[in-house]
Simulated assay, not measured.
Amino acid sequence: MTWFDESRLDGETALASADLRLRYLAESGSRVRREVSGAADAIAEAVARAADSRPRAVIAGGPDSRLLRAVLEPFCPVPFVAWPNPSLPGWAGSLDLVVVLAPDGSDVGAASAVAEAARRGCQVVVACPPDSRVAEHATGRWTTILPTSTRDQLATAVTVLSFLHQVALGPVATPDAVAEALDEVAIACSPNRDISINPAKMLAIALGDADPVVWGGSALAARAARRVAESIRRTSGRAALAGDAEHLLPVLEATRPRNVFADPFADPAGGDRRPALVILDDGADDPVALAQRRSLEQAAAEHQVRVEYVEAEAEGEVARYASLLLHGTYAAEYLRLGLVEG
């Protein structure tokens, strides 16, 4: 059977086995600084090129376009379309700006979208490694490559958002604020910090015997919730869910009353694991989101479902998104570390 051994979260031997993964998380802030610094000249070139006129529309292409949509839709002063398909909308042309995130640079769909955009004469800004498949297809008079090297999705997104803010198409996305927010989470969730003062270890312990149900109220918090649930599924193999309140409420409402006499070691398959509600709070005060949150909290209370909170107070929406995402990813790694076969 699989069980959670919280002593491993402070054990030197166990932590050493996860050193590479935890070190990668700790370097998140430095990757943001590195990507934005390395692309500074290319960003300046793209800003200068875009200064003459505002595009008719912005099309975010490639599989990572949904992150840009979560950031830009409430702000962008021109029509914005997230288009994760390998082609572009039929109406896209020389009046439109196409932005593509390709942190790995090998994605065939992103390469196809970039090539089609260049062929149609669109203004194109693509963030990718300069020697990648996507870069090879990004050849055109109106194309600018923002060179990346870390293959980090968030760092690549911050690079593109920095450009979009400078051309008044996106909200403030100060790279330094994002990097500082990531550094603060890395310090708070460091493997060297004891369980009693480490929020990510405490969250992992709370989820050690549960199936997480993750919710975020704002568009970016909801995006972070989906990414955190993906990380938990990958590290634990458990059925972590993320979604809108209307989709998560039935899960909470179907939870059976807790059996205080149940033996947690009696079921080797772990079939009686209960859900645990994880709320990602980025400080958004939208009335609809607040009402949905109250409904989830009420359902959790009525069905004796544990509720855990992850809060972000960084400066700026993107920085708060980054903080929530990294906090949840740390917790997923500590969950992986604590689960043992016995």
Rank of each mutant, 00 (worst) to 15 (best):
L277S: 12
Q298R: 14
L72V: 11
T255D: 02
F75P: 12
A299L: 00
V178K: 00
S162E: 12
V58L: 06
F265A: 10
R273C: 04
P257H: 07
I205G: 03
L280V: 01
S112Q: 13
W3T: 10
E315C: 02
R223D: 12
T13R: 00
I197Q: 04
M202S: 04
A221T: 05
V288L: 14
H165F: 09
R119K: 14
T2F: 02
R274D: 10
A229P: 05
N85S: 07
D244T: 11
V71S: 09
T13A: 08
R273E: 12
E297C: 13
L277C: 10
Q153A: 15
A289T: 00
A39M: 10
P171T: 07
E317L: 08
R320D: 05
Y321S: 03
E35H: 05
L335D: 06
T139S: 11
N85L: 08
D194C: 09
A18E: 08
R23H: 13
Y309P: 02
R226Y: 05
G61D: 07
G237N: 08
R258H: 06
S323V: 03
A240S: 09
R56Y: 15
L97K: 05
L339A: 03
R223V: 10
L203G: 14
L154Q: 00
A135R: 09
L252N: 09
V228C: 12
E246H: 05
L203K: 00
V125S: 02
D194A: 15
L325F: 01
E313K: 04
V47H: 01
R151Q: 08
